[in-house]
Amino acid sequence: MRALTVTPLRAGTAEVRELPDPVPDEGELLVEGLALGICGTDREIASGAYGWAPPGRDHLVLGHESLGRVRSAPDGSGFSAGDLVVGVVRRPDPVPCGACARGEFDMCRNGRYTERGIKQLDGYGSRLWTVEPSYAVLLDPRLEHVGVLMEPATVVAKAWEQVDRVGARAWFEPRRVLVTGAGPIGLLAALLGVQRGLEVHVLDLATGGPKPRAVRELGAEYHSAGAGEVTERVEPDIIIEATGASRVVFEVMAGTAPYGIVCLTGVSPVGRRISVDVGAANREIVLENDVVVGSVNANLRHYATAADALAEADPDWLSRLITRRVPLERFTEALTADPDDIKVVLTLD
């Protein structure tokens, strides 16, 4: 079979190579790969920034944003040939820590978890892959062309869950949410905000292209002004930060309504210095009972929530988030970001 592989920590090693067809272990599903979403994590691994090959190997099959169709499934697995599925990314550590032992492997305490396509487990960037039924998620058949958005949707499903849990420490009836960043994470976060009946605002630098249109078609309001100006005007109860841009992060932290919650989902690059009035930020957070919380990855509960959210969404709107579909053989194009990209997808058939 063809697979997209990389030698971790070595730039320029990404290639499509022929590998033996996988043979499912007892109880596993054999899945025909349909599509693979590409994100910043994949590009960083391909650049040699990080990544871990499976033990005893020098190469890793890339890809964690999966979409496939079951080719064979064991009796009693809950799946049948032809089912549309995605594979969960993370697996709990073998010790396990207290969080992993309770199914909260997205909150692993000791870092011994593994991840498909990232850390010590082959990813989903191949024509065929196998997965345990307990780490496969069934999708609505109507999502065949957009189901590859499932993994980023799980990230925002968890982010919203974190917001709910923090808000529940006292009376909490939010009305307005600001999402910073109109990439796939930001737009899917906005989708879940609309589904919750909130007044949704999205901030991004783009003034043209597909992002403003996607926001407007969602029924949300698009902004391209500075973060401070927008937060002052909107006074959001909730901010989902999806840019990872250091200056934006600190500007929005000071821009919520009282009892505001900022959930950080974007990862900031290191080494960029900015001047920040930490005292003012601390004063505002303390005196207004604000909270800033980080959120990453997802567990099985978030996958179920994301599957429901995508099934409820307009498939035509979801399809517009996929701005490029690239054949596997032209993977270098997919690994090169374009300013107008929302989501780039590799087709595996």
Rank of each mutant, 00 (worst) to 15 (best):
L335G: 09
L67V: 01
A190W: 01
T323C: 09
D349F: 13
C100L: 05
L139M: 07
L346P: 10
D338V: 04
G27P: 11
I118A: 03
R90I: 04
R213M: 11
T130W: 05
V166S: 10
H302R: 02
E312G: 04
V202L: 03
Y135Q: 12
S72F: 00
E329D: 15
P152C: 03
M150Y: 07
H145M: 07
D122Y: 02
G37N: 03
I322S: 07
A11D: 10
V95S: 14
V155A: 09
E235I: 02
A257Y: 10
V194K: 12
H201D: 11
G87V: 00
L188R: 02
I238Y: 08
G103K: 00
L198T: 06
D341Y: 06
P92A: 00
G167D: 09
L318Y: 10
N289E: 14
T130P: 13
T243C: 07
L187F: 04
K211R: 15
G186T: 01
L178C: 12
D164P: 14
T347C: 05
I238G: 11
V292C: 13
L198Y: 03
S77E: 09
R320K: 12
L149F: 07
R71E: 07
G186N: 04
G193T: 01
I342G: 03
Y135A: 10
G37Y: 01
I118Y: 01
D204C: 04
V148Y: 10
A49M: 11
G48M: 05
M150P: 15
E32R: 11
L198E: 02
K343Y: 02
R127N: 05
S319N: 07
G76Q: 08
A168Y: 08
I239A: 03
E65C: 08
A157N: 09
G37K: 00
E28I: 00
E32C: 04
Y303L: 02
I238A: 10
P269C: 01
I239W: 06
T231H: 05
V86I: 13
L149S: 03
R127E: 15
D25Y: 06
L264Q: 14
P212K: 00
V248P: 15
R176Y: 09
R169Q: 09
A35C: 05
